[in-house]
């Protein structure tokens, strides 16, 4: 057995190389073509030759797949005009050419604020293109395990996909803790309380809540295996599927009533208990392997 390769510590390009069958990746609009953001120079921010996203086709377990990987090291993986257009274009192409899956290695703070308006529209175009892909029967698999997490508009995009894989080091949410603290104060969300941040947005919490399909070790090989299992497995967005999703979300909302919110950081453990997790107070001390069996069976296979 080789040592695990930390997904969190890899760059986007390292992840792509380790995830796909060796030597199978073919990049579209590679750095040599220098398709870059025209909007950063005015802010004195250096651009990147790939605008922070790697896209292309390759093979996974011999099967043809398309892939996009966001680079969290460049502006937090933020979606700008070019970055978003590369991702939307990939999804549009996938809907037409029907690979066995689109893998989306999401690591992003969401809309790139330096080009905010263009980024917001780009995220909307990505969501439309992703759902076109699903409608064409091409499964979209999202992989979250980078140190920047998956937030904002990309947090929404990830929940539009067929399958969602997250590592115990991954975080998936809407607004970052800093933004919530800046808006409602440190009593609402202390962004420096890392334990609370993990209990609110981290992979373990998302697993116990039924928000993802797999909780993985921080190992690229674990992501590869989980992605292979889902190749060609499309989950159509139907009225029945959305009604089931609605019932689940509505029921969950009542497990943490607003009128009964202590605001002292104890809520996640109470929430896991309400979801049926035994001895929920132990959760922060458990690793992914110990945690996997603790999710309530009623949440298994919950539609995304």
């Amino acid at each position: 057995m080789s040592l695990p390769l930390s997904f969190a510590e890899c760059t986007a390009r390292e992840r792509v190389a380790a995830l796909l069958d060796p030597g199978s990746f073919h990049e579209w609009l590679p750095p040599a073509e220098r398709v870059m953001s025209p909007h950063l120079a005015v802010l004195g921010v250096p651009p990147a030759f790939d605008d922070g996203i790697v896209i292309g086709r390759g093979r996974l377990d011999g099967q043809p797949v398309f892939l996009a990987a966001q680079e969290g090291g460049f502006l937090g993986g933020g979606v700008g005009e070019v970055h978003g257009a590369k991702l939307a274009g990939l999804l549009q192409r996938a809907a037409a050419e029907r690979p066995q899956a689109v893998l989306l290695l999401a690591e992003s703070g969401g809309v790139r604020l330096h080009e905010a308006n263009a980024g917001l529209i780009a995220v909307a175009e990505v969501m439309r293109a992703l759902l076109d892909c699903r409608a064409a029967g091409v499964p979209v698999i999202v992989l979250i395990g980078g140190s920047n997490g998956c937030f904002g508009g990309m947090g929404l995009v990830a929940h539009c996909a067929d399958h969602l894989l997250i590592s115990e080091l991954g975080r998936h949410a809407m607004s970052g803790p800093e933004v919530i603290e800046a808006s409602h104060g440190v009593d609402e969300f202390d962004a420096r309380d890392r334990a609370l941040v993990w209990r609110t947005t981290g992979g373990k919490h998302r697993w116990l809540s039924g928000d993802c399909d797999a909780l993985l070790d921080d190992d690229v090989a674990a992501f590869r295996t989980a992605a292979i299992e889902r190749l060609g497995r499309s989950r159509p967005v139907t009225l029945a599927a959305l009604e089931a999703e609605h019932a689940l979300l509505a029921e969950r909302l009542h497990l943490a009533p607003e009128a009964d919110w202590p605001g002292d950081g104890s809520e996640p453990v109470a929430f896991w208990t309400a979801l049926g997790v035994p001895e929920a107070a132990r959760v922060p001390d458990l690793d992914a392997a110990a945690l996997r069996p603790l999710r309530a069976r009623t949440l298994e296979g919950a539609p995304q």
């Binding site: 990830a158 539009c160 809407m174 933004v179 969300f189 947005t201 967005v237 979300l249 943490a256 809520e267």
Partner: peptide, 25 residues
């Protein structure tokens, strides 16, 4: 979006994506 810890814990991103998927459907 609502900037509250409770909404984040409850999966505000999933609920909003659900709305988006409903519109798309």
């Amino acid at each position: 979006q609502q900037l509250r810890r409770r909404d984040e814990m409850l999966g505000i991103h999933r609920a909003m994506a659900h709305l988006g998927k409903a519109v798309d459907l």
